[in-house]
Computed example of a mutant assay.
Amino acid sequence: MNEIFDAIKESAIKIKYLIETGDTGKSEQENSTGDTQLKLDIQSDIIIEEIFAKVKSIKAIVSEEQENIVNLHADGEYLIAYDPLDGSSLVDVNLSVGSIFGIYKNEFNAQNIIASVYVVFGPRVEMVITTDDVKMYRLLNGEFKFIQDIKLNEKGKLNAPGSTQNCWAPFHKQLIDDIFNDGYRLRYSGGMVPDLHQILLKGGGLFSYPGTSDRPKGKLRQLFEVFPFALTYEKAGGGAVDGFKRVLEVPTTHIHDTTPCFFGSKEEINRVLKVYSENGK
Results as ranks from 00 to 15, higher is better:
3 E>R: 11
4 I>Q: 12
6 D>P: 08
7 A>I: 01
9 K>A: 11
10 E>Q: 15
10 E>V: 08
10 E>S: 12
12 A>Q: 04
14 K>P: 01
15 I>G: 08
15 I>Y: 04
17 Y>K: 13
18 L>T: 11
21 T>G: 02
21 T>W: 02
27 S>H: 05
27 S>M: 00
27 S>Q: 00
28 E>W: 04
29 Q>I: 10
31 N>D: 15
35 D>C: 04
35 D>F: 15
36 T>M: 13
37 Q>E: 13
38 L>Q: 12
39 K>G: 09
40 L>H: 04
42 I>G: 01
46 I>L: 12
48 I>Q: 09
50 E>K: 09
50 E>P: 02
53 A>Q: 11
54 K>L: 10
55 V>M: 04
58 I>M: 01
59 K>E: 03
63 S>F: 05
63 S>A: 07
66 Q>G: 01
67 E>W: 04
70 V>N: 07
73 H>K: 07
74 A>T: 12
78 Y>N: 00
84 P>S: 04
84 P>A: 09
85 L>W: 04
86 D>N: 06
90 L>N: 12
91 V>G: 11
92 D>S: 15
96 S>F: 08
100 I>R: 02
100 I>A: 00
103 I>A: 05
104 Y>M: 02
106 N>Q: 14
106 N>R: 14
107 E>C: 10
107 E>D: 14
108 F>T: 11
112 N>V: 01
112 N>L: 06
114 I>H: 03
119 V>P: 02
122 G>W: 03
122 G>A: 14
125 V>G: 05
125 V>A: 02
127 M>I: 12
131 T>C: 10
132 D>K: 13
134 V>F: 08
137 Y>Q: 00
138 R>G: 05
138 R>E: 15
143 E>G: 07
144 F>Q: 06
145 K>I: 15
148 Q>K: 15
150 I>K: 10
152 L>M: 08
153 N>D: 14
154 E>D: 15
156 G>H: 03
164 T>L: 09
164 T>N: 12
165 Q>H: 13
170 P>H: 03
172 H>R: 00
175 L>E: 10
178 D>C: 08
178 D>V: 06
181 N>Y: 08
181 N>A: 14
183 G>N: 04
185 R>C: 12
186 L>P: 00
187 R>T: 14
187 R>Q: 14
187 R>W: 10
195 D>F: 08
196 L>N: 11
197 H>E: 09
201 L>Q: 10
203 G>Q: 06
203 G>R: 07
207 F>G: 04
209 Y>S: 14
211 G>H: 05
212 T>M: 08
215 R>F: 13
218 G>R: 02
219 K>V: 15
220 L>A: 15
221 R>T: 07
223 L>M: 03
227 F>E: 01
231 L>F: 05
231 L>G: 03
233 Y>A: 03
233 Y>Q: 02
234 E>A: 06
238 G>H: 03
238 G>E: 04
238 G>D: 04
239 G>D: 06
244 F>V: 12
248 L>M: 07
248 L>P: 01
248 L>D: 00
250 V>L: 05
251 P>D: 00
252 T>S: 10
261 C>K: 00
261 C>Q: 09
262 F>Q: 09
263 F>T: 03
265 S>Q: 06
268 E>Y: 00
269 I>Q: 07
269 I>E: 11
270 N>Y: 08
272 V>E: 02
273 L>K: 03
280 G>I: 02
281 K>P: 07
